[in-house]
Design a protein around this nucleic acid. Sequence first.
DNA 1: TGACTTTGTGTAAAAATTACACATATTTGT
DNA 2: ACAAATATGTGTAATTTTTACACAAAGTCA
Lengths: 266, 266
Amino acid sequence: MYFIHTINIALFFFNDCNIIKLLMEEGLLISKKGLIRDTVRLVEGYPKVALTVDCIIFGFEENKLKVLLIRSDLKIFEGKWSLLGDFARETETLEEAAYRVLLERTGMTDVFLDQVSTFSDPYRHPGGRVITAAYCSLLNIKHHELKITENELHWHSVKEIDEMAFDHLEILQTCFKWLQKRIQEHPLGFNLLPEKFSLRELQNLYEAILNIELDRRNFRKKFLSMDFLIDTGEMEEDVKHRPGKLYQFNFQKYEKNKRKWVGIDF
Amino acid sequence: MYFIHTINIALFFFNDCNIIKLLMEEGLLISKKGLIRDTVRLVEGYPKVALTVDCIIFGFEENKLKVLLIRSDLKIFEGKWSLLGDFARETETLEEAAYRVLLERTGMTDVFLDQVSTFSDPYRHPGGRVITAAYCSLLNIKHHELKITENELHWHSVKEIDEMAFDHLEILQTCFKWLQKRIQEHPLGFNLLPEKFSLRELQNLYEAILNIELDRRNFRKKFLSMDFLIDTGEMEEDVKHRPGKLYQFNFQKYEKNKRKWVGIDF
DNA sequence: TGACTTTGTGTAAAAATTACACATATTTGT
DNA sequence: ACAAATATGTGTAATTTTTACACAAAGTCA
């Protein structure tokens, strides 16, 4: 009785994916008036494609925006650089696949990925139709030593990349534009820096990513007035000039006081 | 000789999808060292999924944000409302599929679609794994009379939708948030209005979509100072109060003077 | 110790945002 | 014809934000 009731609820509120999953695993939906069977047949009548994810992992080092690349796995692209990608598994969301790929290729876990866009040119992959979803992240190179370095995994200066396997150059460019925009409305930039950083390092980062020059005094004023920077009391060391103060970003305070974003600006 | 040369160029600059397409159609790549064959086999070894697109078409009428929906095609979702979707064809990009779906379901052609996000829960479709890419647009309801009305296609007030087929409610919500953000940094709002509109209509639109109240005088000042509005010299008619001036949006001027978007604001 | 490099700071002018009130044009009802 | 109702159209002062700009202090290097 309990299960019958569950089925009816499930069919009534069918948009809850978890209920569908649950009932499918129980084998309960299969018999319900053949509706599922019909639906399965319908889906089977349409072309299917392979599905991959590609991870675009940005980092910052030597005042340059960098990205993690590997040598392509495919013979046909021998020598070409490629994004970190793989096929999605049967019961994996794209997001899960992206985190798995990142783990498998780099060993990293403590990273946030954002879906940027899906690329679907039918001829983008020489092995047949393969669509790919691009997932993007930014991280501090120093805090994420690469333990796995198969396929010559390493950081490349974004500016110097001019050729890649597949359509990966296009994907990279799309993600770079996404990053330029994103970093101005969300404090993602701090993920790229060491935990403690000087204002000059922060400014270098913005200048490098946005490809603009900023006035130092105004930049400092802006960030200090936002009041999300904690003065650590420490100073830079091992620099060959007057050392600057080191700050930390107050993520907690930011999350509480987050700007609500209303303002028309074309 | 010419073709051999072409092949080498193609393999060298393999990231150009059109060259791959061209050579595949010519059957020329198939023999090249078996690389393609290997790649095809590789791709075939991975799970494949069905692929759909869903169109989220927003409109504005009676001071309410609306969205085009149809009754679900599927028996299992009988009675439920659904986004305008269909399976992608073998050699169609997702974007092409989205424009096709829009044409087939509504008869519309003069519309721009933007990819918003891809949804990939393995259990989101009762017929098996189907991932879907959401494409969004905004248009003027009055300028796009619905010639096709199969599946009870019609406009629904976004606020009143509380249940949908599949995960379409989640998709709709994602697209609504996308719209709220997009309309503040790009003059998409004008697509939702008649060619000639009063400032009050424009303000109503922003207030409805952003769900905020705006000061009338400041709103007018802001838009008039942006200098993208053309005073048509005409006035509103058939309104039961003092008629307002009618304006047009100067898309050309906007495209030339577009804000370059630099400014850090968390 | 002097040259060099980079940090750290303030102010004045300009621009943008906000808050706020009253006269005018038109329709509707009497 | 007039009064009531409704929505348009306009300006200014106070506040906040943005921009442009220069010089002294801290540390390194030779």
